[in-house]
Design a protein around this nucleic acid. Structure first.
Lengths: 127, 127
DNA sequence: ATCTATACACACCTTGAGGTAACTGACGTG
DNA sequence: CACGTCAGTTACCTCAAGGTGTGTATAGAT
C-alpha cells in the first residue's frame, strides 16, 4: 500500500523491526516511560519502586538490554554501598518522543479500537 | 521530561500501552506489514506463505486478536472449500502509517543504536 | 469410492520469559 | 562482632506462548 520499505534493505528492515519489538514490549516500555517522566537519573531502587510489579531480576535484565541498544546509560558510582544511576540517552529520549506521538495518536482514537465488529459474512452464490 | 501524559487518564494510558504492546509484538507486526504491502485482501493460505515461519495456529489466534482490536477485517465467503479474506481496516491502515513513520525514523538512525557504550564508571571520592 | 482443497479446531509437548527466595561483597555503625 | 545497605547474581519453579500433528466439513473432479 503506502511505502513502508523504499530505501530500506531487508536487513535494515529486520533490525528496525527487532528494535521496535524489543522497545515496545511490556517492561522496556514501562521503564523508558518512567525514566522519561522522572527527567533525572534514577537509582536502581527508585526504578524498582516506580515500575510497578517488576521483579529485581527482570529489571536488571531489561536495563542491560536497553543499555546494549543504546537507549539507556548506566552510571556506577564506586561507593559503598554501591550507587548506580540510570538515565535515558539522547537517542532514548528521541525515540521516546516518537513513541509518545504514536501513543497520543492512539489515545485520541481509543474509541475506534476494540470496536468488536461482528463477523462479516458475505452471502455469495458460489465460485 | 516532555509531556507524555497530559490529558490522558491513567486508564487511557494503560489501554494505549496495551495496544502498542500487542500491535508491536512479533507476529502482529509482521502480519500487519504483510497485509499493508499486499494492498489487497489476502486469503488465509496466502498469509501463511507470506508471513514466514508462522504456524497455522498462531496465525489464526493473532488474526482474531487483530480483529478484536479493530485493525483487521475478516470476510468469509460461504463456498466449498471455504474462502476467507483478511484486510486492514481504515484504522489499521492509519495505525500502520504511524508505525511506519517510527520505523523509518529508526532505520535512519540505525547506526546510533547498538552503539555498545562501555560502562560509564565515575570515579568519586565518597558520599 | 477416493482424493483434493481450504480454513480452521483440538490435543499434546517444548521452550523461554518471568517470578521467588536466598546469597554476595564491601564498608560504616553500634 | 553482628547488622544494615545497595545492586545485583544464582538456583529453582511456574506458566503461558507457540510448535506439531491430526481431525473435520463439503463438494467437485477422477
Amino acid at each position: 500500500m503506502f511505502d513502508f520499505c523504499s530505501s530500506m534493505t531487508d536487513e535494515q528492515d529486520a533490525r528496525a523491526r527487532e528494535l521496535i519489538e524489543r522497545a515496545a514490549a511490556k517492561w522496556p516500555l514501562r521503564i523508558l516511560h518512567v525514566l522519561s517522566d522522572a527527567g533525572a537519573p534514577l537509582r536502581f531502587s527508585r526504578l524498582m519502586e516506580r515500575v510497578e510489579g517488576i521483579s529485581q531480576k527482570v529489571l536488571t535484565q531489561t536495563l542491560r538490554t536497553l543499555e546494549r541498544d543504546g537507549l539507556v546509560i548506566r552510571t556506577l558510582y564506586p561507593q559503598v554501598p554501591p550507587r548506580v544511576e540510570y538515565e535515558l540517552t539522547p537517542l532514548g529520549r528521541d525515540l521516546l518522543m516518537q513513541v509518545a506521538s504514536l501513543w497520543r495518536w492512539i489515545v485520541q482514537r481509543l474509541d475506534d479500537f476494540d470496536a468488536r465488529k461482528a463477523v462479516k459474512l458475505t452471502a455469495t452464490a458460489n465460485a
